[in-house]
Nucleic acid binder design. Structure first.
Length: 293
DNA sequence: CTCACTCCAATGAGTGGACA
DNA sequence: TGTCCACTCATTGGAGTGAG
């Protein structure tokens, strides 16, 4: 898997989600209606570099979580009645929920799963905030800086007419241009990081709690998060992370980096925040990604 | 020197607005 | 009304680092 040109691929995550759907259908005698998607995704993965290894990884990870899924559902069936339907949520409800697979019970209640299948170590991205969420929760409007970054890049290239898309392609193809754009973009990452860091600390405690509850998607009582990587399977219910009796939440700058900071909850480092461009430094929109510490 | 962990980079895909 | 593309949000991989 070393030296791969294509790093990650959505198809792998989609394939994994469908394996879980298929398994739940099999457990409770429900017709699996995504066979065609599963076959197409399998072919897509096989066509990528190290395709066989990628597919094997998903299959191996899947085997590890089977008993865990069954255990959860057997418990939930006791509460909500038998499972009558399985829905592949995928990325259809991106804003509304982080659930990937929903099992629907006869009572119409649901048990939902957010599933992450990771090759090595780590727990995956908890949340990725675009400009809209950054403005909503932190009150930081970075749109003028973003415009300015592009103006500087256009000025350097002497191109004020091409679309951003065209410029992006041009820069990606040329190492010298890419280097310049990256260096220019980094300045803005640092500025945005600083702004967000300051803004967070000036929020009221309730605003901070709202923000963190949004990050963890912990208002959904039916949701389970399952993370499987090379060393173990991690399962938790986000709702159990709901912040109630919290006295202090604050942000401290990481020692190591100027595009990240750490959110401390009652003096315990809990979340790591990373300020980046989403699709290449200096040539794409800004975002913040949140990880477990 | 090795390996685990941290930081962050770069991809795919959905959505909706602009504009023909 | 169809096409393009900017923007948003999700995913995982790889380079770098430091403990042993």
């Amino acid at each position: 898997m070393k030296n791969r040109k294509v790093k990650s691929n959505r198809a792998q995550a989609d394939y994994f989600e469908l394996l879980v759907c298929q398994y739940i259908c099999h457990l409770y005698n429900i017709t699996f209606s995504y066979s065609k998607d599963l076959a197409e995704l399998s072919n897509k993965i096989l066509s990528l570099p190290s395709g066989t290894t990628r597919l094997k990884l998903q299959n191996d990870n899947f085997i590890k979580i089977q008993p865990k899924i069954k255990k959860i559902l057997d418990y939930e069936i006791g509460q909500k009645g038998k499972v009558i339907n399985v829905i592949w949520v995928g990325r259809n409800l991106l804003i509304e929920t982080t659930s990937d697979v929903d099992a629907e019970h006869i009572s119409r209640q649901k048990t939902r799963f957010s599933i992450k299948s990771i090759a090595n170590t780590g727990t995956g991205t908890l949340k990725n905030l675009g400009a809209r969420q950054i403005k909503k929760y932190l009150g930081v409007d970075f749109s003028n800086d973003y415009k300015q970054m592009w103006e500087e890049l256009r000025k350097y290239l002497g191109d004020s007419t091409s679309s951003q898309y065209q410029i992006k392609k041009k820069v990606q193809r040329n190492q010298k241009l890419l280097k310049w754009a990256t260096e220019n973009g980094k300045k803005y990452q640092i500025v945005l990081n600083e702004l967000c860091c300051k803004s967070f600390n000036s929020l009221s405690l309730n605003q901070k709690i709202d923000f963190l509850n949004f990050i963890t998607d912990c208002n959904d009582d039916d949701l389970y998060v399952i993370i499987v990587n090379s060393i173990d399977v991690i399962i938790y219910k986000p709702v159990e992370k709901n912040l109630k009796l919290i006295k202090n939440i604050e942000v401290r700058k990481d020692k190591m980096t100027d595009v990240g900071y750490t959110i401390f909850v009652d003096n315990k480092p809990t979340y790591r925040v990373q300020t980046n461009n989403t699709n290449g430094i200096g040539i794409s929109a800004f975002c913040q990604r949140i990880f477990w510490v």
